[in-house]
Design a protein around this nucleic acid. Sequence first.
RNA 1: CGGGGUGUAGCGCAGCCUGGUAGCGCACCUGCCUUGGGCGCAGGGGGUCGCAGGUUCGAAUCCUGUCGCCCCGACCA
Length: 566
Amino acid sequence: MRLSKFPLHTTKETPADAEVVSHQLMLRAGYIRKLGAGLYSWLPIGLRVLQKIEAIVREEMNRAGAVEVLMPSVHPAELWQESGRWQQMGDEMLRFKDRHHNDFAYGPTHEEVICHHFRQDFRSYRQLPVNFYQIQTKFRDERRPRFGVMRAREFIMKDAYSFHTSKEDLAREYQNMREAYARIFTRLGVDFRIVKADSGNIGGSASEEFHVLAGSGEDLLAVSDSGPYAANVEAAECQPAAHPRAAAAAALEKVATPGQKTCEQVSAFLKVPLTGKVKLLVVNAADGGLIAIALRGDHQLNEIKAAKHPKIASPLTLATPDAVQKAFGCEVGYLGPVGCPIPLIADHAAAVVADFVCGANDNDHHLRGVNWGRDCAEPEAADLRMVAEGDPSPDGVGTIKFYRGIEGGHIFQLGRKYSAAMSLSVLDDKGQSVVPEMGCYGIGVSRLAAAVIEQSHDASGMIWPDGIAPYRVILCPIGMDKSETVRVAVETLYGELMAAGVDVLLDDRGNRPGAMFADADLIGVPHRVVIGDKGLAHQQYEYKHRRGDKAEMIPATTAAVLEKLA
RNA sequence: CGGGGUGUAGCGCAGCCUGGUAGCGCACCUGCCUUGGGCGCAGGGGGUCGCAGGUUCGAAUCCUGUCGCCCCGACCA
């Protein structure tokens, strides 16, 4: 492609509202343009990258035995009412009516639609397993779209849905997809981790996320420093303490702590470490009443784990200050387990603290030297807290270290949640009707383009791996308009590279060298060849890799350039 | 959804407090010049100041309403 015929619009200045580097660079390099909040157009140069990522995804999905389909973005409401998600999805699902006043949704995901098609055509176990995938536009009306295409409302997703006659076969396909995903992420050239995940809204049992590691990532990952364990902090378990609780040594004592409400304040005021304090949170219980959760002073509640506890209301909601005042007769800052008027569950770590400090259930007072079993009832213990950096890994190998990641893929074993709700069935080999097991597997294709940039850029711009670069090589002729020698040389090279099937970009706009180099660096083309009178005088081109800091002279032949690309 | 901010040329911004000819940089057009890291000089085009009301002789500027966008939080693929 000749740049003189290609609409490339780069800027020196960074748009004011772009926060993360990928968003800034995609705007500056003319990859994307904003249409509205969370809505982006892909311009020609950006679309080439998107299509190359799609091509890799398509190749690996096909290789893994999945078959491609294409389903509509617009879904009749009836399907979503049938699964029950018309109500559950809330405002995240965009809804509208057609001219007949019938309800529709713009699909945020396609379980309902694929299930509908499955039941139209599938009757026998002989037709299974099957795995359908598509690469298609989704819309999720995020409350706060941000970071450009990294968290857009409309985005491109590869979603796949598999159907099986047994859990074992589902587990086999899940593993197959896991391997396909690992190949995809590897081919994209990114540093990634596969982590255990909470399955959230989609539901189902086993689920893992594929995260591209990046400081700007919105997810926090708990990864063992020396073992295989890796989980999203939302899903990371915490093991009960390996050591039993120490025996009570201190006497119970009530102390005045005027105005000291937070654990940090009390800890500093009484000069006890945060780990020697127990705090109480009051949340709404599953039975409609209140329930107290005891955590060690330095720990945070994991709301997802807590909401799964049978005694706690789901979704988890904090009790109002008024409700707490009414139940405890004091403010939120002075709660403690001694004389707790409502049921109490303690996190494993809080349950093994001895001689601890806690609120006295009396304004401006705390207790010290408190011990479970002696001063209050032995608590029911559960895993309720957020994992912390430095914790032992739950699998016993290594300690937990935190990383930030961008979720690029998510795989689920759904089980029969949707197949049962949508009344799917096939006959098995004994003529019995069975509800198929389902898996689903997603990749955020447009998000991955941004994620790669987050991991691979420098002060001058993007740095694409060869496999997904918009063009692999850019030719920069110096003084092309003046020098016939340069013009002939670069035209010849350009023609021969095109003939060799190389994605080559020729900067024939007549710019000065500085401007050409700045654009080449910004758009991230991995290989650059400079053709000038100086080099040609010695039958040489100048070659530079985008990652290299120095250029080198190579023979002025197409073969020498092709060798660099190999 | 709660809190904060912002809307002036394609982009980045000043002007607003204290009402009186709408400006700067980049980009764009023309000419000359220049050609190894976003050249230089000269000339030029482009804005109903988000929208709707109001106050005023006069509103980008003051008032009211409304919409868009951004940030923080909560929530969530």
